[in-house]
């Protein structure tokens, strides 16, 4: 028999998802979010530049107008998702104890969710008040 012996079923071998059942999904999400973040980061930099020297009222007007607000929501949403995925890899690389690793991974997800919720709340409040 030319085929290498394996415990994997032929179905599992072609689906190529490995023991974690996720395959290259994480790597793909990193690529996807990083490509989206290229134009979004440029938009973010332009928004921050046009904020320079503005007082409270005029900063609110800029941040609450539709285009900056939508771009900020996308930047914050995609950016926080990307950074949470990235920190997950750092945790998996450097934290080895099972409990410590799982706690750190949970904390990472919670940090991203809290930061995302707070930022989205702030931008929406700027737009609708």
């Amino acid at each position: 028999m030319a085929q290498k012996s394996t415990l994997l079923t032929p179905r599992a071998r072609v689906s190529f998802l490995g023991s974690a059942k996720s395959g290259t999904h994480h790597a793909w999400l990193m690529r996807l979010t990083s490509f989206a973040l290229l134009p979004l980061t440029i938009a973010f930099i332009l928004i921050v530049l046009s904020l320079a020297g503005r007082d409270f009222q005029s900063a609110r007007i800029l941040l609450g107008s539709p285009c900056p607000a939508i771009l900020l929501l996308l930047f914050v949403g995609v950016g926080i998702y990307h950074m949470t995925l990235g920190m997950q890899v750092i945790i998996e690389d450097y934290i080895h104890g099972t409990h410590a690793k799982h706690l750190a991974l949970m904390a990472n997800t919670c940090f991203g969710l809290v930061l995302g919720a707070a930022s989205v709340y702030a931008v929406l409040r700027l737009s609708f008040t």
């Binding site: 941040l63 990235g86 707070a118 709340y121 702030a122 931008v123 008040t129």
Partner: peptide, 18 residues
């Protein structure tokens, strides 16, 4: 990792403006 921490500053700024 630095930007991960720096995003706190962005959220703080947006909350302050709101």
């Amino acid at each position: 990792a630095a930007l991960y921490a720096g995003t706190l500053l962005l959220a703080a700024y947006l909350l302050a403006a709101a």
